[in-house]
Design a protein around this nucleic acid. Structure first.
Length: 635
DNA sequence: CAAGTCTGTCATAAG
DNA sequence: GTCTTATGACAGACT
């Protein structure tokens, strides 16, 4: 089993690598427990395979065939996955690494190259460049200077256009479809493009980068995408540039930007929960200690979701450390999920605060499922009607003036993020499974996790007030303990971390004995909690299997009893017929004097040659005794 | 309010 | 010997 598991895992890994080389990224976590086990160490507790749904013991040999079939099925699904372009984007960002944040993936995706090559970069050069970059991103939210949709679109057409764009986002080809609609319309990317243009020199450089990126993408990935997804990709018409690949790569471009935009792009279409982790990984692995410049930050912000263009600017600019991306994503994530800015700022101030994901699968009655919250409508009304929750209204009340962004713009983008059908929530819940650390939990458990959808619960009014105290109450004992001791890790991180990483974490961070002790306790309890869950599930499965066995055996017994009764009936019938025949034969037999033969004194005896003779019963009985004695002796 | 269920935790055996 | 996992037992919350 172990060898087979390893073989399957390696094969699937190679397959995934091959797919990634052609621009397709396969999310192994969605269906491949061995990968995690390989990376994190063997642990059934980490297995995302819900054994409750399998009704199999994890050590059961039946799982072998299951994994094989499942793997093949998922590979086929991955090949035919309509979301390939989106996932491909991430793969390209990882491999190519030339992206510029402004004119990079998002800019290109959203069609900046439609105008950027025609616009001479020098036109936009000027002294305004530096202030624009250091001005806390204000230009990006300047309504008068930007012909964004909100200002141009007719309010009546607003919903329609938004829906179209939303479809563009929701469509599996993601940005490319959006671009298609761009040919006739203006979109968010033009905000970015114009922003670039007004930024001056670097804006021009960004345009160059944009074209380079577009060219790069059209040369490398787009064809692959087209060949894979067969989508009508309008960007092919927008790639007339002949920037060579090396030139595109040689641009002075921050990988962080590209990665951030990547994460943003992915997140903006619903993979909210994926972003922080994936981004954190990319950031830590590829940009070691590279502090983000203000330029980078300004380039970041136009690409960020307008929902997050609020009071976070100061935080972002003040804390330009290596965790800035995490904070940005946390902030945007929190805002998208309806967190109160105060809470979010507290999250930033307290690095030990929980990531919002918890292994605690206790079902709080106050928690609301996603399906419940999906009934909330966003952006049905103009302006401030986008969000109905108090926290959100608070968070956006002062937004328009402070950030300078148009509320309509914000609302529109928020609509694009929120006003979606159930598939959006399905995707969210899927990504909960894929990208958080609650590997043992089912999506429904995650949905009902109190921390995870705290904002939704606040919206639904099931919690009295979305105060921090309510959040505290929803924390588990370990979470509260960790928070009180200022432990700079979330509980699920502590629990799900591999042993090696866990030990490194304990050694690299300065932690008190109490903190270390508590961390170890948290890890032990968390592990044991998962183990207990798995154990109970296995026990339940065993019980169910035994019940099935009992039912099968009962059915078999019934069947055998019926067969026996049938045989007995047949046997008695044959005996009766034989008896009748016997009597019939004797009634016709006559002795030498012509008298009838008495059946009580004589019997019929069948010889070995087939002849039948009439013998006296006493002789017959003595022969029978001899035969039985012979049999006994032989035995 | 009692009974049943669920879940987290502890202690301990097993690998 | 240490660590991790599995499992029985218990307690508390919940239904």
């Amino acid at each position: 089993m172990k060898d087979l598991k390893k073989y399957m895992t390696e094969g699937l890994l190679q397959f995934t690598i091959l797919l990634s080389l052609v621009g397709v990224r396969v999310d192994l976590e969605s269906y491949l427990p061995p990968i995690r086990e390989i990376i994190l160490g063997s642990s059934s507790a980490y297995s995302p395979i819900p054994f409750h749904s399998l009704s199999l013991h994890p050590k059961s040999p039946e799982l072998d065939s299951f994994f094989t079939a499942r793997r093949l099925l998922d590979e086929v699904r991955a090949l035919g996955d309509p979301r390939i372009p989106r996932t491909e984007l991430s793969a390209w960002l990882v491999h190519a690494v030339p992206g510029d944040a402004e004119a990079g993936p998002v800019g290109v995706l959203l069609g900046t190259n439609e105008e950027s090559p025609a616009d001479p970069p020098s036109d936009n050069e000027g002294p305004s460049q530096t202030p624009a970059r250091s001005s806390n991103l204000q230009p990006s939210h300047d309504p008068p200077s930007q012909p964004h949709i909100a200002t141009e679109a007719d309010p009546g057409d607003y919903t329609k256009e938004t829906q179209e764009e939303k479809l563009g986002y929701a469509a599996d080809s993601y940005g490319y479809n959006y671009l298609q609609s761009e040919n006739g319309k203006r979109g968010l990317d033009e905000d970015v493009a114009q922003q670039n243009g007004q930024d001056g020199t670097i804006g021009a450089a960004r345009n160059t980068d944009s074209s380079a990126n577009s060219n790069l993408r059209s040369e490398i990935t787009l064809e692959d995408i087209q060949s894979i997804s067969n989508t009508n990709n309008p960007i092919s018409s927008t790639a007339p540039y002949n920037v060579v690949f090396t030139e595109a790569i040689s641009q002075d471009v921050s990988l962080q930007e590209a990665m951030y935009t990547s994460s943003h792009s992915v997140r903006s279409i619903g993979e909210l929960t994926q972003t922080p982790e994936s981004f954190m990984q990319l950031n830590s692995s590829t940009v070691p200690g590279g502090p983000l410049s203000v330029t980078d930050l300004t380039s970041l912000f136009p690409t960020t979701d307008n929902c997050s263009r609020n009071s976070t600017n100061q935080d972002l600019l003040s804390g330009l450390d290596e965790n800035v991306f995490d904070e940005i994503n946390l902030m945007s994530l929190a805002l998208e999920e309806g967190f109160d800015p105060l809470e979010v700022s507290q999250l930033f101030e307290e690095p030990d605060s929980d990531s919002g994901l918890s292994l605690n699968s206790s079902h709080s009655p106050a928690s609301a499922s996603i399906s419940d919250s999906s009934s909330i409508t966003y952006g049905e009304d103009e302006g401030a009607a986008g969000y109905s929750s108090d926290s959100e209204s608070v968070s956006y009340d002062g937004l328009e003036g402070a950030v300078g962004g148009s509320w309509t713009d914000i609302n529109k983008l928020c609509q694009m993020d929120y006003q979606d059908d159930a598939s959006y929530y399905d995707e969210v819940s899927l990504n909960n499974v894929r990208h958080n650390h609650s590997y043992n939990q089912l999506p429904d458990q995650l949905e009902s996790s109190p921390e995870h959808h705290y904002s939704w619960t606040a919206k639904s009014g099931k919690l009295g007030s979305p105060s921090v105290g309510g959040l505290e109450k929803s924390l588990s004992r370990d979470e509260r303990r960790a928070k009180s001791l200022k432990i700079p890790f979330s509980v699920d991180e502590i629990v799900s971390m591999p042993v090696e990483m866990f030990n490194n974490m304990l050694s690299k961070h300065y932690l008190t004995e109490t903190q270390i002790s508590v961390i170890r306790d948290i890890r032990r309890r968390g592990k044991n909690k998962v183990a207990a869950q798995n154990c109970r599930k296995r026990k339940l499965d065993v019980i169910l299997n035994l019940e099935d066995d009992v039912n099968q055996l009962k059915a078999q017994k019934e069947k055998l009893l019926k067969e026996r009764a049938q045989c007995s009936k047949s046997m008695s019938h044959l005996k009766q017929k034989l008896n009748d025949l016997y009597r019939n034969v004797f009634s016709r037999l006559r002795d030498d004097q012509g008298r009838p033969v008495n059946p009580s004194q004589y019997a019929l005896h069948c010889n070995s040659d087939g002849s039948i003779i009439v013998v006296p019963r006493r002789l017959f009985k003595s022969e029978q005794k001899k035969d039985s004695q012979k049999d006994k002796k032989q035995k």
